[in-house]
């Protein structure tokens, strides 16, 4: 059974976002990692770019499939969690600890439109 944490927000494309002041970390949900299976590659080649909500910031790949990763809100991509380059399986082990990018939040009010854990769970399942 997938875990849904209520300390953060989600989007339908299965990313989570956890804010901390005007920055935030973004990763993929436990449901998404379960669906993908063994994750073998993560990339975010958008560091330094300012992206809008819904734009692709990177990708995550399992043995079988490649999935694009989408910005949950507008922001500047500050950092890629480079640990994932060598150990992409950390996302399988704990999808909520293994953040993929850190962003600078452009418009904090966009957070209000995101899904809380309960709503996201309904959509995911």
């Amino acid at each position: 059974m997938a875990e849904y944490r209520d300390d953060r927000y989600y989007v339908e494309s299965h990313e989570w976002i956890l804010t901390d002041g005007d920055t935030a970390t973004v990763g993929i949900s436990d449901f998404a990692q379960e669906e993908l299976g063994d994750i073998v590659y993560v990339e975010a080649d958008s560091v330094g770019e300012s992206l809008e909500k819904g734009e692709i910031f990177g990708s995550v790949e399992s043995v079988k499939v490649a999935s694009d990763l989408f910005m949950p809100i507008d922001g500047e991509v500050l950092e890629f969690n480079e640990v994932l380059e060598e150990e992409p399986e950390l996302i399988n082990e704990d999808a909520y600890a293994a953040w993929i990018i850190k962003i600078k939040v452009s418009d904090p009010s966009q957070i209000d439109d995101l899904l809380d854990a309960e709503k996201y769970q309904e959509i995911a399942e």
Binding site: G37, D38, V40, S62, V63, K64
Partner: peptide, 11 residues
């Protein structure tokens, strides 16, 4: 069945 425990350990 596409996988049981995982593609890596099944392979």
């Amino acid at each position: 069945p596409v996988q049981y425990t995982g593609i890596k350990d099944e392979t």
